[in-house]
Computed example of a mutant assay.
Amino acid sequence: MKVSRKTEYGLRAMVALASMAGVDRTVPLRQVAEAESIPEQFLDQIMAKLRRAGFVTSVRGAGGGYQLSRPPEAISIGALVRLLEGSLAPIACVTEEGNESPESVCDLYRSCRTRNVWMRVAVAVTNALDALTLADVMYDDIPLHA
């Protein structure tokens, strides 16, 4: 699974927003963009999507900005990634979203011997991301390795 810049930036922005303000106060978009080295115009588009989905709220005008709509413990990383990235399925025939059935995207749907591999990958990724909250990411003390 390759994650888009939108998802990478969105998750980083949410962690920064949670660290800077949480649900208590707003943070200007520019401050988040500068702190995370994210182009401000691109971040504005991402934050608009997060606001429409109810992950953040915004206040206009002087002293305005963004804040979390609920505590970091109540924000699922899986839900954030699905919003920003779309399906977590690594291949179209195992996707659970949209109007297309697996049969419509692949003629080999019924006989494909590798489909179970991709199903397992999709389930593992979904379970791993759904098990994490924004708070888990904020306070994760696992050493980072390259």
Rank of each mutant, 00 (worst) to 15 (best):
E34T: 15
G64D: 14
F42K: 08
I77P: 08
N116P: 07
I75E: 02
S19Q: 00
V32D: 01
K2G: 14
M119C: 09
A21W: 06
E40V: 15
R30V: 13
W118Y: 14
L108I: 12
V137G: 06
G63R: 08
F55A: 10
V15F: 02
Q41W: 05
E100I: 04
R30E: 14
S58W: 04
A92G: 06
A89N: 03
P143T: 09
P28A: 15
Y109D: 08
S37W: 12
E96S: 01
V117H: 07
L83D: 02
F55R: 09
V121Q: 06
M138G: 02
A92M: 05
D24T: 15
L17D: 03
L129R: 04
G54K: 11
C106V: 06
R115H: 04
L68M: 13
A48K: 12
E96A: 00
L11N: 06
R30F: 09
G64H: 12
R120Y: 12
M1H: 07
R60A: 12
A35Q: 09
D140T: 06
V117F: 09
D136S: 10
L11F: 08
S69F: 12
S69Y: 10
R60T: 11
R70L: 00
V27F: 06
A53H: 00
E8N: 13
I142G: 00
A33C: 09
I38V: 14
E40S: 15
A124K: 11
G86A: 12
D141R: 10
L17V: 05
G86W: 08
V137Q: 06
S104K: 04
V15L: 08
D24Q: 15
Y109Q: 07
V94M: 03
F42G: 09
P90F: 01
R5I: 12
G61M: 00
A62E: 13
